[in-house]
């Protein structure tokens, strides 16, 4: 099953946030799954249109996903999915 990892920055808003194993085999399915466990987290990652927020990145393995709009990138059972914030200053 794909494993999903989160930036520690999200732990501040979702105490108890930890690595999860998911059943989904696309990035979209995995994000929908974690929303069930952590209600509201999807709104931190995606905008109103369901697109990946501008300053958020999702990696599968070491590569950034291709489809930021529909999150259709496929996963394999041993995929490691990482949700990170993009770097910014200020």
């Amino acid at each position: 099953m794909p494993r999903i990892h989160f930036t520690s920055a999200l732990s501040r808003f979702f105490p108890g946030l930890a690595e999860e194993s998911c059943k989904g085999l696309t990035v979209r399915e995995v994000v929908d799954e974690i929303e069930i466990k952590y209600p509201g987290i999807k709104d931190f990652i995606l905008d109103e249109e369901g697109k990946l927020r501008k300053h958020v990145n999702i990696f599968v393995g070491e590569k950034v996903i291709h489809d930021r709009d529909k999150l259709s990138d496929s996963l394999s059972t041993d995929s490691e999915v990482l949700i990170f914030q993009a770097l910014s200053g200020g």
Binding site: D43, R53, H55, V56, Q85
Partner: peptide, 8 residues
């Protein structure tokens, strides 16, 4: 007004 996570 999070820079990464949207308005909350």
């Amino acid at each position: 007004a999070h820079r990464h996570w949207g308005q909350k």
